[in-house]
């Protein structure tokens, strides 16, 4: 796991403490029961804080999986 993925995993573990770490890379809004709109905003805010990026909240409907968010963060941090 690269360092971006590891840091993103920590963000997920903070917001969803009941989610086993091994399952985090497959996490999506459909398979995590507690992932609602409030959790989305909290998660995106945490990601913004962790990676020091301004998260585009207008895109939060697309950012509904670990892999989607990983891609988004990599895109934003490599720019």
């Amino acid at each position: 796991m690269n360092s971006t993925a590891a840091r993103l995993t920590t963000c997920f573990a903070t917001v969803f403490p009941e989610l086993p770490e091994a399952e985090i890379p497959q996490a999506t809004i459909s398979n995590v029961a507690r992932w609602d709109s409030v959790a989305t905003v909290t998660l995106l805010s945490l990601v913004g804080e962790e990676f020091n990026i301004e998260v585009d909240f207008d895109r939060f409907e697309e950012l509904t999986s670990f892999q989607g968010l990983l891609h988004y963060v990599e895109e934003r941090t490599s720019a």
Partner: peptide, 12 residues
Amino acid sequence: MKLSKAVLLANQ
């Protein structure tokens, strides 16, 4: 306090 710490404490 950072948001990450706040979320942890709020969960506790």
